[in-house]
C-alpha cells in the first residue's frame, strides 16, 4: 500500500519505475506466500522484469518529470471512491479465504484435481489445466499477445533507410572499453540464461514453468545482449524479419495442433486422438502447444523492445542532425 501511494504521489518518473519494480516483486512474494508457484513465476518474470525495462526505454524518450496537473480531479476521485465502496460491499458476502464450502471448491476444481493424473498424466496440474482442459482459452491469450505485437509494429515500426546505417553505427551506443567487466560477465551469463529458458520450457510439466515464462526469459537474454552490445549488433544477430516470422509461426503452430486433432476425428484441441495412446497424445499435444506459446511470447517481447529502442535511436539521430544543422 505504501509503495502504491508513493508511486502515485512522486513526480519523478524514474523513481516511479523503480517503485513499480518493487511493487511487482511484492505481488510475486504474495503469490509465493499463497502457494501459487506458477503465477509467482510469471509475475516475477514479467511484472518485475520486462515491464520495468520497457517503461525505462519509454522514459528516456519522454523525459523524467511528470507534467503538473492544473486542476484537481475531484469528480474522478468521487467516482473511484463510490466504485471501490461498492466492490468492497460486494466482497463482504463472499466466503472466507480458503473455506471448504466455497463454490469454487465444489464443481470444476475437484474434477481437475482428482482426474488430472489419469486423464493427462503430468504432475503439474496448472499446466494440465492451462494446456489441455482449457487449451482454447490459452489460444485466446496467445492471440492477444500476437495482437499486441502487431499493434506495436503498426504504430512504431521504424523503416530503416539504408543510407542511415552509417549514422547508426556512428551513434553506436554500446558500452565498449569503458565497461569491460560488464561485457565479460554478460558473455558468460547469456548462454546460461538461454539454456535456463529452454529448461523452463520443457520442465513445465513437472515443475513451475511452461511456455509463457520461458518466452519471457529468452527475450530477457536477447534484451540484455542488445543493451550491452548495442542495438545494431543485436539486429545483425537477430534479424527483425525472422523474428516477425517466428511470431506468426508460433500462433499458427498452436492452431494447427487443434486442426490436426480435428482431422483425426476428435474435437478441436482434443489431444487424445493425436497419437495411438491417449496419454501419449496428451503429452505430445501439450509439448507442441507450449512450444508455440514460447515462440510467440519470446518474439513479441523482442519485437516490442527493438521497436521502442529503435524509436529512441531515431530520436537521437534527429536531435543530432538538428544540432548539426543549427551549428553549421
Amino acid at each position: 500500500m505504501v509503495v502504491a501511494f508513493a508511486i502515485i504521489r512522486m513526480k519523478d518518473l524514474f523513481a516511479v519505475v523503480m517503485l513499480l519494480g518493487i511493487y511487482g516483486l511484492l505481488s510475486a512474494s504474495f503469490f509465493v506466500a499463497m502457494d501459487a508457484v506458477d503465477v509467482a513465476f510469471t509475475e516475477a518474470a514479467v511484472g518485475a522484469g520486462i515491464s520495468t525495462l520497457l517503461m525505462l526505454v519509454v522514459i528516456t524518450m519522454t523525459g523524467r518529470t511528470e507534467k503538473v496537473t492544473r486542476h484537481k480531479p475531484l469528480l474522478a476521485l468521487l467516482v473511484i471512491a463510490i466504485t471501490g465502496a461498492l466492490l468492497i460491499y460486494g466482497t463482504l458476502d463472499m466466503p472466507y479465504y480458503g473455506s471448504a464450502d466455497a463454490p469454487i471448491h465444489h464443481h470444476v476444481a475437484p474434477r481437475y484435481i482428482n482426474d488430472s493424473m489419469q486423464e493427462v498424466g503430468i504432475p503439474n496440474i496448472v499446466t494440465s489445466v492451462l494446456a489441455s482442459y482449457r487449451a482454447f482459452d490459452t489460444f485466446g491469450e496467445v492471440v492477444v499477445i500476437f495482437t499486441a505485437g502487431i499493434g506495436v509494429l503498426a504504430l512504431l515500426s521504424v523503416a530503416r533507410r539504408p543510407e542511415d546505417s552509417e549514422d547508426i553505427t556512428a551513434l553506436d551506443d554500446s558500452m565498449h572499453e569503458q565497461n569491460l567487466v560488464l561485457r565479460i560477465i554478460t558473455k558468460i551469463l547469456i548462454p546460461f540464461i538461454l539454456l535456463f529458458a529452454l529448461y523452463v520450457q520443457f520442465h513445465g510439466d513437472f515443475g513451475p514453468g511452461g511456455g509463457f515464462q520461458a518466452g519471457v526469459i529468452f527475450a530477457a537474454a536477447i534484451i540484455l545482449y542488445a543493451m550491452i552490445f548495442g542495438l545494431s549488433n543485436a539486429r545483425k544477430v537477430i534479424n527483425q524479419d525472422f523474428i516477425q516470422l517466428i511470431t506468426a509461426v508460433g500462433v499458427l503452430f498452436y492452431g494447427c495442433v487443434g486442426l490436426v486433432s480435428l482431422f483425426n476425428g476428435g474435437n478441436f484441441f482434443d489431444y487424445n486422438v493425436l497419437s495411438s495412446d491417449p496419454i501419449a497424445g496428451q503429452h505430445l499435444g501439450i509439448l507442441l502447444i507450449e512450444w508455440g506459446v514460447g515462440c510467440t511470447v519470446a518474439s513479441v517481447m523482442i519485437i516490442i523492445f527493438f521497436n521502442f529502442a529503435g524509436r529512441r535511436e531515431m530520436q537521437k539521430i534527429n536531435n543530432n542532425n538538428n544540432n548539426q544543422e543549427s551549428s553549421s
Partner: peptide, 23 residues
C-alpha cells in the same frame, strides 16, 4: 520448486539494474 523462481528473479534483477544504468 520455488528455487526456479529464485533463479529467474536473480537474473531479472540483474538485467533490470543493468537496463536502468544503461539508459
Amino acid at each position: 520448486e520455488f528455487l526456479d523462481i529464485a533463479i529467474v528473479y536473480a537474473l531479472i534483477n540483474f538485467i533490470s539494474v543493468i537496463g536502468v544504468l544503461r539508459y
